[in-house]
Write a protein that binds this DNA or RNA. Sequence first.
DNA 1: CAAGAGATGTAATATCGCAACATATGGACT
DNA 2: AGTCCATATGTTGCGATATTACATCTCTTG
Lengths: 165, 165
Amino acid sequence: MTASPTPTAALAFAHHDHAHCVGEVLARAEAASLARGARLTPVRRRTLEILLESHRAMGAYDMLDRLAAEGFGKQPPVAYRALDFLVEQGFAHRINRLNAFTACIHPGEDHAAAFLICRACNAVAEAPAARVRAALDAAGAEIGFTVERATVEALGLCPTCRTAA
Amino acid sequence: MTASPTPTAALAFAHHDHAHCVGEVLARAEAASLARGARLTPVRRRTLEILLESHRAMGAYDMLDRLAAEGFGKQPPVAYRALDFLVEQGFAHRINRLNAFTACIHPGEDHAAAFLICRACNAVAEAPAARVRAALDAAGAEIGFTVERATVEALGLCPTCRTAA
DNA sequence: CAAGAGATGTAATATCGCAACATATGGACT
DNA sequence: AGTCCATATGTTGCGATATTACATCTCTTG
Ligand SMILES: [Zn+2]
Ligand SMILES: [Zn+2]
Ligand SMILES: [Zn+2]
Ligand SMILES: [Zn+2]
């Protein structure tokens, strides 16, 4: 266990000490919740854990199945509310293209993210998108548009699937 | 859903000779269809016209209502198929964030687009996104990811609404 | 004309997401 | 302690979005 680096986008497509990265992110989410007075309740915490463990983008109904199997509520709002909370707190992201959610790899920090979705294996990586965001801000500025929130989702091939093909 | 795209991104948020811009774009789509052997049939053509005339992002079911009222089929696939065709041909774009579709302002050309969505008036502008795309390609390349298709959607304030506020 | 491809239409169903309401839980305050 | 209130959790029911499967029609091509 060297240092304790922020999980990087590259990790999403590679093997790694997953249990460790789950614990790391979860601990950060807990700290951030505490710091800002948000309540990381059992359902919410478990929802984040499941997202982290699956290490993929998950649909709300997939999450609902998991939660229901563990004794939480069985109706859609249970999953949607927990997921919405995580998104609001910056602990998870919504991937519009997939109607799905994915855990954030650096929860609590303010950051622009781009999502790289492998069309072959469905892995989703969260990449830093500061430069993408800057280019988008500039494109908006040219016509007087002020960008507040951005959705950037790329479909393509991850290194592994690219090699395989 | 209330939005509005046009020939240049700047025009999207301003008044202009709309009838002319509709004709212009439609003519280009026709030429492109002819050139590549795609069949711009009556439903498809009418769907594109409606998109252009409405000058907004439209949901599939809104489009279906319009088409049904004009004597075309009344079932969802009628709208979805026509819209899918237009998207495939590059005559329209899907705005994932809105579950809606909008006419492309330069149909047939190969281009990277970013969509600027005003959160106040729901107008949608299609902005050139070559630089955004380049930045995204670079972000992917850093971890060996090959970007094939990108979805870039920004939420913010258009010039008009910004001034009003 | 016959055969096949592609387009259009319908019915039925799958998937995604939310509003409304009831109940429970946990502090804050007498 | 007990009351009050905000928040969270659970439910029913519904609305919006999207697709599959199949029937029909229309072109084109030999
Ligand atoms: Zn993130
Ligand atoms: Zn892959
Ligand atoms: Zn376009
Ligand atoms: Zn506006």
